[in-house]
Each structure stands twice: as structure tokens, then as C-alpha cells.
């Protein structure tokens, strides 16, 4: 990835992050902010890696994304609207009565490939098997939130995916770890995935070059299912303007303005350093 493309993707990610903050402001809920950690991963997948056809939402050759992470929906919606799947104004009625965008991804929404809110890996496995049986070339990407390896039958699906090994399934697991840190959480996870027959790697989930290195090292069709543990820094990445708020107090318009300019400043600093 050259520097020009990298800063282009960073610009897109900034726009998505700002839309997520605006969604949090409009819906008066700082509970939407955990979606910020997954933005770079989604931007990389949708703008760089996945084959998608926003004009033909049912194109059988498309890649699919299954969002298992329950907190990431606002970021996914912001990405899909930016790609032209639906009007950006829909973002402002997220979770509102009569709005199109449901709390958890709903397959009636253009661009949504699978229902969200439950262990998505099993769904991704079924989709991947069906795509393979139909002789299509699509790949399936399942995005997992941080706590998911600990709950709700995920390892049953991890096992089943290794048994069926459809050759076209990727799992991206968010981890709150810091890149360059001690790998306290990631090392055992890598071992466990390997013992289940997965090929697993770690990437800096905030850095497009690192994300790209991880994805490009996987050649489809793969013999084993592939997992990328993406270190995204967790809630440390929320804008300070929201962080200072007590959890139960809704963000004000002023908070939103300050958070937006904070995101701009941080992005400017990073751009200057590059």
C-alpha cells in the first residue's frame, strides 16, 4: 500500500469515525462509541479487500461480511452509507422507531449480508459452505468483538469451521491490546486457534499497512480457516470529550462538536508525522 492510498483510507476512516460520533450525538448515547475501534478494519475490508457491488446488492459474486460484534453496528452502517448502499440521512434515525437502521444488523437493510446479535461465525460458516457448493468465488468475513471468544458457543463454531474448512472464511477478532505491548491476551488466543486447526495472525488494527500485511499473507482458497487478531486499543480511543461524561449522562451538542474537532486534530497530527 503506497502512502497516497494509505492517507486516502485514513481520510475515509476519519469521516466514518466522525459519522459514528454524530450518530452517538443524535441518539444521545455515548454507548455507540465502542464502534470506533472497528472503523479501520471495516474501511480496509470494504474499500480495499472485499469485492462488493453497491449498485447490485444481490450480486452472487460478492464477498459477504457477517458482523458478530454487537457494538460495531454504527460503524458498519456509516461505512455502508458512505459506499452508497443507502442514504446517509438514515444514520441519524439509527435505533429510532420508523427508521431503517435497527439496533442490530437486519438483512432487510441494503448491504447487510447476515443478521447480527448472535455468534456470527456459525452463520459465516454456513454462508461460506453455500458459496462453495454453488461454485461461486465469494469470501466470507466475520468480525468479532472483544469479549466474544469467552462466550456463547463461539468455540463450537471455530471447531466446525476447521472441520468443514470451506477455504473462503476469515475471522477478524478485535482485541483491546496495544500494538507492541506484552501480548498478554493475544498469545493464548493464537495458541488456542492454532490447536483448533486455524491459521491465525496478529495485526495492528489501527494501522492500514499492518492490516494489509496480515490480509495479504492469506491466499485463498486456504486450506485452513484464517483468523486475524486485530489490536484496536479498546476504549482508550474514545474522544476525550465523551470520556469525561458520566455513563448515564447523554452527550450534549457541545460534546459532539468538541469530539469532532478532537478527531480532526488527532488525524492532523498523524498526517503530519507520516
Amino acid at each position: 500500500m503506497d502512502d497516497a492510498r494509505r492517507s486516502e483510507l485514513e481520510g475515509i476512516a476519519l469521516d466514518i469515525r466522525k459519522d459514528v460520533v454524530r450518530m452517538a450525538g443524535v441518539s444521545k448515547s455515548s454507548g455507540l462509541l465502542p464502534a470506533l475501534t472497528v472503523v479501520e478494519l471495516l474501511v480496509y475490508l470494504y474499500w480495499e479487500f472485499m469485492r462488493i457491488f453497491p449498485g447490485q446488492r444481490n450480486n452472487p459474486e460478492r464477498d459477504r461480511l457477517v458482523l458478530s460484534s454487537v457494538s460495531a453496528a454504527p460503524a458498519l452502517y456509516a461505512c455502508l452509507s458512505s459506499l452508497g448502499f443507502f442514504d446517509r440521512d438514515e444514520l441519524w434515525s439509527y435505533r429510532r422507531l420508523g427508521g431503517m437502521l435497527q439496533g442490530y444488523p437486519d438483512i432487510r437493510t441494503p448491504g447487510i449480508d447476515a443478521p447480527g446479535g448472535t455468534n456470527g461465525l456459525g452463520i459465516a460458516l454456513g454462508l461460506a459452505l453455500q458459496i462453495r457448493m454453488a461454485g461461486l468465488g465469494g469470501r466470507v468475513f466475520c468480525v468479532m468483538g472483544e469479549g466474544e471468544p469467552c462466550g456463547d458457543g463461539l468455540w463450537e463454531s471455530i471447531d466446525a469451521a476447521a472441520v468443514h474448512a470451506p477455504g473462503n472464511i476469515f475471522m477478524i477478532m478485535e482485541s483491546a491490546g496495544e500494538p507492541g505491548g506484552e501480548m498478554e491476551a493475544e498469545a493464548p488466543l493464537l495458541k488456542r486457534l492454532a490447536s483448533f486447526g486455524w491459521k491465525a495472525d496478529v495485526a495492528d488494527g489501527r494501522d492500514f499497512a499492518s492490516i494489509e500485511r496480515a490480509f495479504r499473507s492469506i491466499k485463498t482458497p486456504m486450506r485452513e480457516p484464517a483468523a486475524i487478531i486485530a489490536l484496536t486499543g479498546g476504549s482508550r480511543r474514545h474522544p476525550d470529550a465523551f470520556e469525561s461524561k458520566a455513563q448515564d449522562r447523554p452527550p450534549s451538542l457541545d460534546d459532539v462538536e468538541r469530539a469532532l474537532s478532537e478527531l480532526d486534530t488527532k488525524a492532523g497530527k498523524r498526517g503530519g508525522a507520516a
Binding site: D113, T118, N119, G126, L129, Q130, M133, A134, A160
Partner: peptide
């Protein structure tokens, strides 16, 4: 059929994915 393993939960999720892909499961 596809041998789905012993987990009811995983079988339901796989069926969901197969159905999303266009096949009745």
C-alpha cells in the same frame, strides 16, 4: 447431508448461513 457436529447452536447458525446463501436448510 452435511454433518453439522454435536452442537445444536452451531447447526442453527450454519443453517442460517446456508439459507442466506439461497438454499433451504
Amino acid at each position: 447431508g452435511i454433518l453439522a457436529g454435536p452442537s445444536e447452536r452451531n447447526a442453527v447458525l450454519m443453517a442460517s448461513g446456508l439459507s442466506l446463501g439461497g438454499r433451504m436448510a
